[in-house]
Simulated assay, not measured.
Amino acid sequence: MSLTLQQIAEFFSGGQFAKIYQHFSDNIIWNVVGENSFVGKKAVVDNCEQVAAYFQAVTTNFKIDNVIVDNNRVAIDGTAEFSRDGKRVSYVWACDVYEFNDRKELEKITSYCIQEKK
């Protein structure tokens, strides 16, 4: 399936990781600022699988507020609300910056996440 860079980025920001694994560069880097860095396709996919498992354990509500596309870069900001049994577990404001190589492979993701304080 041929996806645009924006579609690839939106799938990632929406937690639909498995739909885009084939678009990851072998040397992909995912930097979650202030938390973790994942280097290489296996490390990024493994983390995506862990995150996806969490998303399956809660009700998720992702909202995209803005998308900016500039050549081989896409930036998306929005929010994510996670709830269980009708109660909010957490709420996150996020901005993801995606960088693609000339083969339209995702090479670098920089994620900025701010979690609501309880």
Rank of each mutant, 00 (worst) to 15 (best):
I29W: 00
K108Y: 15
N47W: 10
N101T: 09
F38W: 13
K41P: 12
T60R: 02
R84I: 04
F11E: 10
N27M: 05
L3R: 14
K41F: 14
D26W: 12
N71Y: 07
G78I: 01
E49C: 09
A57S: 15
I8M: 00
K117S: 10
G40C: 12
N71V: 08
V67Q: 03
G40A: 14
T60C: 03
N31R: 04
T59D: 12
V51S: 03
K19L: 09
L106M: 12
D46H: 07
N36K: 14
W30S: 04
S2L: 11
N66A: 06
K104G: 00
R88D: 02
Q115M: 08
K42S: 14
D70S: 15
Y54K: 05
I76K: 01
S111D: 13
E116Q: 14
N36T: 07
Q7C: 07
E49W: 05
E49Y: 07
A52Q: 12
D102M: 12
T79I: 03
A57V: 04
I29D: 01
K42W: 08
K63R: 11
Y91H: 04
T59N: 11
Y112V: 11
R88V: 12
I68K: 07
F55H: 14
G15E: 10
R73H: 10
E99M: 05
T59V: 07
Y98F: 15
T4I: 13
S111T: 14
R84E: 06
K104P: 00
V67G: 01
A75D: 05
I76A: 01
Q115A: 06
N31L: 08
K118N: 13
I114H: 14
Q7R: 10
Y98K: 04
D46Y: 05
K87N: 08
L3C: 13
G15W: 09
A80Y: 00
K118V: 11
I68W: 08
D102R: 11
K118L: 11
S13Y: 01
N27C: 03
E10Y: 01
S37V: 15
N36C: 04
I68S: 06
D85A: 13
W30A: 04
S37P: 01
Q115H: 10
S13H: 02
D77G: 01
R103G: 07
V39S: 11
F100C: 02
L106Y: 08
I114G: 09
R84H: 07
I64A: 03
H23D: 11
I109P: 01
C113Y: 08
S111P: 05
N71A: 14
V97E: 07
E81S: 06
Q56M: 08
A18S: 15
S111C: 12
K118H: 13
A43Q: 12
F12W: 03
M1E: 10
I76D: 00
V97L: 15
K87V: 09
E105R: 12
F82T: 00
I8W: 00
T4R: 12
E107Q: 10
A94W: 06
N36M: 09
N71D: 15
R73Y: 04
N36Q: 09
T110I: 15
Y112H: 11
E107I: 02
F38C: 07
K108V: 08
I109C: 06
I29G: 00
F62G: 00
I8E: 00
T4Q: 12
V92T: 11
F62Q: 00
F12R: 00
G34S: 14
V51R: 02
I28F: 07
I76H: 01
N72W: 04
A43M: 08
K117Y: 11
E116W: 06
